[in-house]
Structures are given as C-alpha cells and as structure tokens.
Computed example of a mutant assay.
Amino acid sequence: MRIGVLSALFLACTLFIGSVSANWAYMFVVNNGSIYVISEEHVDPKQVGSRIGKVTTYSDQEGTYSGNFSNRYPKGTEYYEIIGLDIMDAIAVKENEGLYIKAAYEGEYAGDRYGWSDFLLYVFVVLLVLVAFYFVKKRMIR
C-alpha cells in the first residue's frame, strides 16, 4: 500500500516536471548575460557590423538556462552589432542570408542565477525516491 502511494506520488512529480511548457511574454535572445527582445524591425545588411555571439541553447520549454539562450532561434543563430548603435541599445539577429532582425536591449538576464528555490522541487523528488527505497528495502527484509 505504502509503496503504491509513494510510486504514484513519484510518477505525478515526474510527469509534472516533464510537462511544463512555456508561455513566453515575448521572444528573446540572450547574449553575454543581456536579454534582447526580438522586434519585427529589419536591419539593413549594410548596417550590420561584427559578429558578437550566437545562440548556444534553444528551448521552448520554460526553465532557467545559461549561456546565449533563445526561445525563438535555433542553436547556431548569430548575433551582430549594429553600426552606429551601442550593443546596450540593440543588436541584429541573423534570420537568413541577408535578413537581419533588430533585437532591443531589455536588461540583465536573470536566468543565469540559481537560487535555492530553483532546486526545491528536485530536492523533494530525490527525498521521495529515498523514502520509497527505504520502504522497499524494509519490506524485503521481512
């Protein structure tokens, strides 16, 4: 009985963790800890300067990510400076050959920082597994 209840709780937690999906307020890219909101404004290729980075992690699943993360562009998508603009104002994101989209600086990306509350659910699941193993082992000894 106890094992069945613990197994059901463990399964429910596992399904909950795996089924979280994103409902992003906006599409964005992160470059060196700064978040940039994707606009619909095109950047003239003549205004595109040096490459400053690229997407290292893509996900449409809500979560906390590190590196140059995007919730719109795939891994490998490149970022460029815009000639005449500071990168703290905006950058250009390469969508296709010759097509660049402006992304406006929004602030510092908080996703690179982890707090204890980020790991609380995982700690709970690990404790649940340990308790389940304890009861299984106790029952096998009888």
Rank of each mutant, 00 (worst) to 15 (best):
Lys54Tyr: 07
Val136Tyr: 09
Leu99Pro: 03
Ala103Lys: 05
Met1Pro: 09
Gly107Ile: 09
Leu11Arg: 03
Glu81Asn: 10
Tyr26His: 11
Val123His: 00
Val5Leu: 10
Gly63Gln: 05
Arg51Met: 15
Ala22Gln: 08
Phe133Lys: 02
Pro45Cys: 01
Leu15Cys: 11
Tyr26Asp: 13
Tyr58Trp: 13
Asn96Gly: 08
Ile91Pro: 00
Asn32Ala: 15
Lys46Tyr: 12
Asp89Leu: 03
Gly115Leu: 02
Val20Gln: 10
Phe135Met: 10
Tyr36Ser: 03
Gly18Asn: 11
Ile87Leu: 00
Asp44Arg: 01
Cys13His: 08
Phe16Ile: 14
Ser117Gly: 10
Val123Phe: 12
Ile83Val: 14
Glu95Pro: 02
Val5His: 04
Ile3Leu: 15
Ser34Met: 11
Val93Asp: 05
Arg51Pro: 07
Gly107Arg: 10
Leu120Gln: 05
Ala92Asp: 03
Phe133Trp: 11
Ile83Trp: 00
His42Phe: 11
Asn23Val: 12
Asp60Arg: 04
Gly76Arg: 08
Pro74Val: 08
Ser66Tyr: 09
Phe69Tyr: 15
Leu15Lys: 03
Leu99Ile: 15
Tyr26Trp: 12
Val126Gln: 00
Asp86Ser: 15
Ser34Trp: 05
Leu121Tyr: 11
Met1Asp: 12
Arg51Gly: 09
Ala132Gln: 09
Val37Phe: 03
Ile38Trp: 04
Trp24Ile: 02
Arg142Ser: 12
Val48Leu: 00
Val43Lys: 06
Phe16Gly: 13
Tyr26Pro: 00
Ile101Met: 04
Gly63Trp: 01
Ser66Ala: 12
Leu15Val: 13
Lys46Asn: 14
Asn31Thr: 03
Gly107Asn: 10
Ala12Lys: 01
Ala90Leu: 06
Tyr114Glu: 09
Asn32Cys: 06
Ile17His: 06
Val126Ile: 15
Ile38Val: 15
Trp24Ala: 12
Gln47Glu: 14
Gly107His: 10
Gln47Cys: 04
Cys13Glu: 13
Ala132Lys: 06
Ile38Cys: 05
Ala12Thr: 14
Val136Trp: 08
Ser34Asp: 12
Phe16Arg: 11
Ala12Glu: 05
Glu108Gly: 00
Thr64Ser: 10
Gln61Asp: 13
Ile82Met: 03
Val29Leu: 03
Glu108Met: 01
Tyr36Ala: 07
Ala132Glu: 07
Gly63Met: 05
Asn68Thr: 11
Glu41Arg: 08
Phe135His: 13
Val55Leu: 02
Ala22Leu: 02
Tyr100Leu: 01
Met1Tyr: 08
Gly84His: 04
Ala104His: 10
Ala92His: 02
Gly49Tyr: 07
Gly98Ser: 10
Ser21Cys: 03
Val55Arg: 02
Val20Arg: 07
Val20Thr: 11
Val126Ser: 01
Tyr109Cys: 04
Leu128Glu: 10
Glu108Trp: 00
Asn31Arg: 08
Lys138Trp: 07
Leu99Lys: 14
Met140Asp: 00
Ser39His: 06
Val129His: 05
Lys137Ala: 12
Arg142Tyr: 06
Met1Phe: 08
Arg139Met: 12
Val123Pro: 02
Ser70Pro: 06
Ser21Asn: 09
Tyr122Met: 12
Leu120Phe: 05
Trp24Asp: 13
Leu15Met: 13
Val93His: 02
Ser66Val: 15
Ala92Ile: 04
Gly49Pro: 07
